[in-house]
Each structure stands twice: as C-alpha cells, then as structure tokens.
C-alpha cells in the first residue's frame, strides 16, 4: 500500500448526515464520516450507542430518518456483490437444523441463483472459506453443536465465501477465546493485505486500540473518527463513554500495552490511512 495510492483512493464508505430512530427515539444523530479502503476500521462505542443500528442503516436494513449512505461512490443496490454483512451472532437461532457447510453456502446465494443448484466454483469458494477459518473438519456438523467461537468462525466463513471488497461485521469478537481471536485477526489482516476493507463493530476499548487502524467513536452522535491515535484521547473517550472512570483509568494502560504488544500478532503495523477531521 503506497501513500500515493492512498491519496487517490476514493472513499469506500461514506455516511452523510445520517439520523435514525426506533419508535421516534433517536438512536443515531447526524452521523457523518468517510472511510478509505484497504484498512481495518472499528466502530466503537458503549452498549446501546447505536453501532448495530449504524451497520443496519449502511446495509439498507432499516429506513433512516434523514441522510444517506454511499458505498464505493454509489448506491448499495449497484454494488451489493462487493459488500458483505456479518450480523451479530445472537441475531440467529443456532438450533436451526442446518450444517456448518449449509450456512457457509449461503454466502454464495444470490437473488438469481436461489432456485438453482450452486455451481462447482461456488462450492470451491465455500471450501476455501471453511479452510481459511479452520472449520473444514466441522463442515458436516449441525450448527447447534458448535462453541461460541466456532459460531463466529462460521459467520466469518460465510462472509469470506461472498468474496466481497468491503466487509461489515457486527461484534465478531464476542465470545471467542484467544485462539479464535488470533485466527479471526489473521483472516482480517489477510483481507487488508489484499486491499480490501473491513469495518468492525466492537465495544471493548481494551482491544480496540490493538485491532484497528482507524476508528469511528460513536455514542448516538459521532464523537470522533480517524486514525486511532487521534481518536483515542482522554477527551473523546470521556465524551463517548461518559464519566465511567474505570474505563478511563485503564486507558493509558491500554495504550502503553499496545505500544509494546505482549503477543505477536503480525498485526501491529499502523497504516494510519483513516480520514482525519470530524
């Protein structure tokens, strides 16, 4: 990734003055930001700050009160094939009678092939996706017989099978152990190295600084966005998380730790390609 390339790169995701509400209660208020491609970005904020709502709005799953979203400079319906959405794990019934493989196959479903069989090349992509998240040997298992971390891997595999350019993931790190965390991070940085963009909803401040290149700090309003060093200040975090001192007192600790990571992740180089401002 050259700096030159970054200068000319058009934003992959633009959110313009977006406001959204549930039952007239505003949940997002005048959100406005741009995100450049080729990076891993985090949407970070406390519980109930509207992170899931923001993702649902970007994916056209609910109607905004005002504002609009652009993906790859255009409308979602024109670039659907390039965008992959990973819902929050709890949003589906994991007792559903399907196998791991059947779920990952859904990543190859399209409006036009729903009444046909999947092609051999689709099946190959499914195999590759299962392989990448280390779930190939579990392919025939029913999804109810998976651990929380394995469920997250299945969702990740389904997204990978879509072969998109932009991945929007809702809390993929919830309920995973260290091994799965590393596996997921490995997959994500591989995506970034291919020039793809990953946007991750995340609520844990401790790890956010390690995981992401840039951040969107949210609490109904947009508190800050840009390269993580800019976003992660005492002032912005206090604004987003309120006076929760336990969180703030840990902050300096977190940053200090991140500067000298204990575990090697192959993930600590900072591309800093997030848009400044806000």
């Amino acid at each position: 990734m050259s700096t030159e390339g970054q200068l000319h790169r058009a934003p992959v995701l633009e959110v313009h003055n977006l406001s959204a509400s549930y039952n007239r209660k505003p949940v997002l208020w005048d959100i406005d930001f741009r995100l450049e491609g080729g990076q891993i970005a985090g949407i970070v904020g406390p519980n109930g700050s509207g992170k899931t709502t923001l993702l649902r709005n970007i994916m056209g799953l609910m109607e905004a009160d005002s504002g609009y979203v652009k993906l790859f400079g255009g409308d979602l319906k024109d670039v659907r094939e390039k965008v992959s959405y990973v819902p929050q794990r709890e949003s589906v019934d994991w007792d559903f009678p399907v196998s791991v493989r059947e779920v990952v196959e859904m990543g190859r479903f399209r409006s036009r092939n729903l009444m046909r069989r999947l092609k051999a090349q689709d099946q190959d992509l499914v195999d590759q996706a299962l392989e990448k998240v280390g779930m190939l040997e579990y392919a025939q298992r029913q999804i109810s017989q998976l651990s929380g971390g394995q469920q997250q891997r299945v969702f990740l595999a389904r997204a990978l099978a879509q072969n998109a350019d932009l991945y929007l993931m809702d809390e993929p790190f919830v309920g995973v152990d260290a091994a799965t965390e590393d596996a997921i991070l490995g997959v994500l940085s591989a995506l970034r190295n291919q020039g793809k963009t990953v946007v991750i909803v995340h609520h844990d401040l401790q790890t956010a600084y390690q995981y992401f290149d840039s951040m969107i700090l949210l609490n109904t309003r947009l508190v800050a966005y840009g390269p993580k060093e800019k976003v992660f200040t005492k002032e912005t975090l206090q604004e987003a998380y309120g006076g929760r001192l336990t969180v703030l007192s840990k902050l300096s600790e977190v940053i200090a730790q991140s500067e000298f990571p204990v575990r090697e992740r192959g993930f600590k180089e900072n591309t800093g390609s997030g848009d400044g401002g806000a």
Partner: peptide, 19 residues
C-alpha cells in the same frame, strides 16, 4: 434454498439483495 435462507437469517438474505 430461498426458504432456508429466509428462515435462518432474513437480514442476511436482504443484505444479499434477495427480495
């Protein structure tokens, strides 16, 4: 296939552009 997808994960089906 459509019924399976829709029953398991309707939001995801929408995100794929399924009507």
């Amino acid at each position: 296939k459509g019924l399976k997808l829709l029953s398991f994960n309707e939001d995801y089906a929408k995100s794929l552009g399924v009507r």
